[in-house]
Design a protein around this nucleic acid. Sequence first.
DNA 1: GGTAGAACGCACTAATTTGTAAGTATCAAT
DNA 2: ATTGATACTTACAAATTAGTGCGTTCTACC
Lengths: 119, 119
Amino acid sequence: MPAAPYACGIDGVVDLIGGKWKIVILHRLTSTDGRLRFSELRKQVGKVSEKMLSQQIKEMVADGLVRRIDYKVVPPHVAYELTAFGKDLCSALYPICDWGERNLGELTAISRARQDRQA
Amino acid sequence: MPAAPYACGIDGVVDLIGGKWKIVILHRLTSTDGRLRFSELRKQVGKVSEKMLSQQIKEMVADGLVRRIDYKVVPPHVAYELTAFGKDLCSALYPICDWGERNLGELTAISRARQDRQA
DNA sequence: GGTAGAACGCACTAATTTGTAAGTATCAAT
DNA sequence: ATTGATACTTACAAATTAGTGCGTTCTACC
């Protein structure tokens, strides 16, 4: 985690979204356009442990990308939603997301070539 | 390195630019708008070892983002430049870069808050 | 009493990424 | 002969990230 200054604006963004599950979390929260409970978010993210999800979404809350809504009941009932900052980031991420979709074939081929190189 | 399919287009991109030095390398190659020798690239990237630079640019070459031009002399003389694919990616990255610059204060504050949390 | 539910926290391990140190090849200059 | 230059490679160590297993709280249900 290098301190500012960033060599390029994107470095700071990479720090924000860096973490195995963060992109998917952002994606799920954007797609839903509302709040997601922890358990529902976990279901939507897919193969992620409670621990890892909890850890990474906790960071995202601390960074101001996500808001945690605690219903203060037992069993615990918590929901998460994007903050305005988080939504702003997601719209800035959209062109890249779109580029990635448009180049999916190329990206998939690259990924496969990487795997072949390691086998 | 999960194989395709990607949950979101950006996942593939994150795979492409994931690596401590790759963003800076892209940035330097874009800013220069031409070829950079290994030694010059290393100078411009800053505090990076020959080994790490070599490793990460080798991956970028393999992924098709960067082209390696070997002058076939001794001492070795090699230069690197962006491919069309690399340039395309960089233009797709530009909005993110711009967003990062515009939110630099916020990103810096977040980075600082992270450091404080770890102290 | 025991079990289930939900969203975590803690201790420790495993996996991955990054880095250090030394070495390589060949030519030119001292 | 020795040193310097350049762009790597290899072996191993250090640092960081991701994951496993167990535990917590309190209520409801069997």
